[in-house]
């Protein structure tokens, strides 16, 4: 059984207007997202800004109310606040935020910041608590003198490590990392990511890793889901996505990865423009009239793509003739 199962999750925001402030329409921030996270793995959720990946994360952890769908954890639907309380859900599922500065209370010392989840879930005495905080600081590579300082006295990378330490404090099973390194420069990114990997190895934590940086995702994740306009357009293992992208959006996203090799600059540029041309041409077929992605179709046991109906039918016939069990 998976650690956490997200099933047809929807988060819609009403648009109010007209007379009496009626609901005239909905913004479909997340519209029917389904995926599972296994224990101990890193699941990547990738998409452009506004694609609904952060909203998905917030709905999973309970910061955002889900309009429909379920998030099953330990056999309970944790989209209901009551179930979350019963399970001590937030002890097992923690979050790392994108903006490390604003995610740490500027008026609290680091000791209090990291001890906050400890105080809520594990009632330790003062000495034990301080010891645990010091140990957590050591795990993320910070010295003891950080204990009584305030968040603004640290650099971005240090702050994000403090955020990691806080998330790890109660020894959670899943950490949702919402673009944890996108506000950091490259050298510090590597540092924070390596700490996250080290912690994963030591404690067997699963990550839901949200990012728009495909390079980082490749480094971190085994399974990846690509999201756009509130829906998942392609799901697969790292190899599926990077070596055999099938949705035009995924192809376009992959073509946008900057290339450092200057010798092939022209060739890359040409490739990019080609992909963009294909994207513009086929946009109408890959999205329905409302501009939404089609339902996912399995193209291999690990790989699903939101193909348009005609292509999907072709695939089904192919796989049937080949006798692949899909």
């Amino acid at each position: 059984m998976s650690l956490i199962e997200i099933n047809d999750l929807k988060v819609h925001y009403p648009i109010r207007g007209g007379f009496w402030n009626r609901i005239v329409d909905n913004v479909k921030a997340v519209d029917g997202v389904t995926f599972n996270i296994e224990a101990g793995e890193t699941y990547g959720l990738v998409g452009e800004s506004g694609s609904g990946k952060s909203t998905t994360a917030k709905a999973i952890i309970g910061l955002e109310k889900a309009t429909a769908g379920t998030v099953m954890y330990n056999g309970k639907d944790v989209t209901k606040a009551e179930n979350r309380r019963k399970l001590d859900y937030n002890r097992d599922v923690q979050m790392i935020f994108q903006d490390s500065l604003s995610s740490l209370n500027p008026r609290k010392r680091i000791e209090d910041v990291i001890a906050e989840p400890l105080r809520n879930f594990e009632h330790l005495d003062k000495e034990e608590e301080k010891l645990r905080v010091l140990q957590l600081l050591d795990i993320v590579g910070l010295d003891a003198d950080a204990l009584y300082k305030y968040p603004h006295q640290f650099s971005g990378g240090q702050r994000q490590r403090i955020g990691v330490a806080r998330a790890v404090a109660t020894h959670p099973k899943l950490i949702i990392a919402d673009e944890p390194v996108s506000a950091l420069d490259l050298s510090v990114q590597a540092q924070v990511l390596n700490f996250m990997k080290k912690i994963q190895r030591q404690f067997g934590i699963s990550y839901l890793f949200i990012s728009h940086d495909l390079g980082v995702v490749r480094h971190m994740c085994k399974n990846i889901a690509i999201m756009t306009r509130g829906r998942i357009v392609e799901v697969g293992t790292r190899e599926d996505i990077y070596n055999n992208p099938m949705h035009i959006y995924t192809k376009r996203l992959l073509a946008a990865i900057p290339e450092t090799n200057v010798n092939h600059r022209e060739a890359h540029r040409k490739h990019r423009l080609e992909i963009e041309k294909i994207y513009q041409e086929q946009q109408a077929t890959y999205y329905d009239q409302d501009g939404m992605a089609f339902p996912l179709v399995k193209v291999s046991p690990t790989h699903s793509v939101a193909l348009p109906p005609e292509l999907a039918k072709k695939f089904e016939q192919q796989s049937e003739s080949k006798g692949v069990n899909v």
Partner: peptide
């Protein structure tokens, strides 16, 4: 569960007083 975090570091109870003192020296006014 408690053991796991303790295992990952070399900091133990004996260092607590020393480290607290260190932290106090660096504390913000």
């Amino acid at each position: 569960m408690k053991r796991d975090i303790a295992d990952a570091t070399s900091i133990s109870k004996e260092d607590l007083a020393k480290l607290t003192k260190e932290a106090n020296e660096e504390a913000t006014p």
